[in-house]
Design a protein around this nucleic acid. Structure first.
Lengths: 201, 201
DNA sequence: GGGGTAGTTGAAGATACATTCAAATAACTC
DNA sequence: GAGTTATTTGAATGTATCTTCAACTACCCC
């Protein structure tokens, strides 16, 4: 028998297991048995904690998203220079490679968001928060005279996040010419014209 | 009994039916019965034409993608002015609304492309062709002296397609503030700095 | 350390889905 | 228009998955 765990611990485990299962089989292809296997439990045990699988899947997506965002914020807090912040943020929004689990999970959401309102709301809220994150970097840099913005910061920030998203898809789809480094350079090229700064640090 | 059709006619029908079924249930959630229902047939009939459902799904994705791309090329051919071409191309790459079937289908592919090499290749090939399309518009405009490009045309074109992709996702996910018009404006703002042209026509 | 609780299993039952195929029939051929 | 072929159905079969639940057991608490 699998190790017994407290309600909360097991639920955390299951959310992690669901995350992995989604990455492996897709939001619409994932099954109870997949989650159970990832968690090292039987289907019955999964159902004991989450009588409705779709609830678990939503929680898994939510948790994965929050973690991704929190991680970026935490990293951002380690530097103060606007240039360093911007460059670091661009990098942290891209997958480390085609297998990056965080981005893989987010990408799974993309298609489902068109069909499922809950996923749509989740994804939209992540997008908006990332936009705010970029916007505050841009505004701060402009206030300090480091950036000379080529347009309003909201527009620029929205485009920066959009580019991140799109290259995340390209990388996970294994574009032969666009990897993490190339994608970062492409986004940086936009960021340079947007900020009027060479962004060398 | 459903109307009898020739092999080729029925296969075309089934590809269309599969397209709708994928949009409704996702690449990984679609079932034989969904396709059959969309086509107004029984599962047996579907299996008679496509013994392997996944083959039909790939064909459906392929067909949808080709149609999307061909449509853009055809529209592009109706104008000659680089400014008009660029503006029109940006608009034609965006969904008409959250329900736009062509973009919905492409978005379904995004997540699956990380898991399924075939889908990855399909999506990558579409991306590359779209980049070429933009690149040729940019190069022509530059040669004519209409555009003063802010960087190399490949970088700019890649970013333009990336922005299209990303806003396609935002729109199908029903972002409350970003619809087709707003997305077009966001991409145009990038296109303006990229071409040094106001892009009014 | 005994009783109670919470977590887990495994098997049984129910449901859903894919797959096969004989029979039916529409369309085509000569 | 008789015979042949291609397409479709519907029912039967098999398999996979979900769901339920009684039994088991580890752990907690007094």
């Amino acid at each position: 028998m699998a190790q017994r765990k407290s309600r909360t611990d097991r639920r955390i485990d299951l959310i992690e297991a669901a995350r992995r299962a989604i990455i492996r089989h897709g939001v619409d292809g994932v099954q109870l048995s997949h989650v159970a296997e990832e968690a090292g439990l039987t289907s019955g045990a999964v159902l004991y904690h989450y009588p409705d699988l779709s609830e678990l899947l939503v929680e898994a997506q939510h948790a994965g998203m929050e973690r991704f965002y929190e991680q970026r914020l935490r990293q951002l807090a380690t530097v103060t220079d606007p240039v360093a912040k911007l460059v670091m943020t661009i990098r942290s929004g891209l997958p480390t490679g085609p297998l990056d689990p965080d981005v893989r999970l987010l990408n799974e959401l993309g298609g489902a968001a068109g069909r499922n309102r809950v996923y749509g709301v989740l994804l939209t809220s992540l997008y908006d928060r990332q936009v705010s994150m970029y916007q505050s970097i841009l505004d701060t840099g402009a206030a300090l005279g480091v950036f000379r913005l080529s347009g309003d910061s909201l527009t620029l920030a929205r485009n920066l996040v959009a580019l991140e998203d799109a290259y995340g898809y390209r990388i996970t789809a294994r574009h032969p010419l666009i990897g993490p480094a190339e994608a970062a350079e492409l986004i940086l090229s936009y960021a340079r014209t947007a900020t009027g700064n060479d962004l060398v640090h």
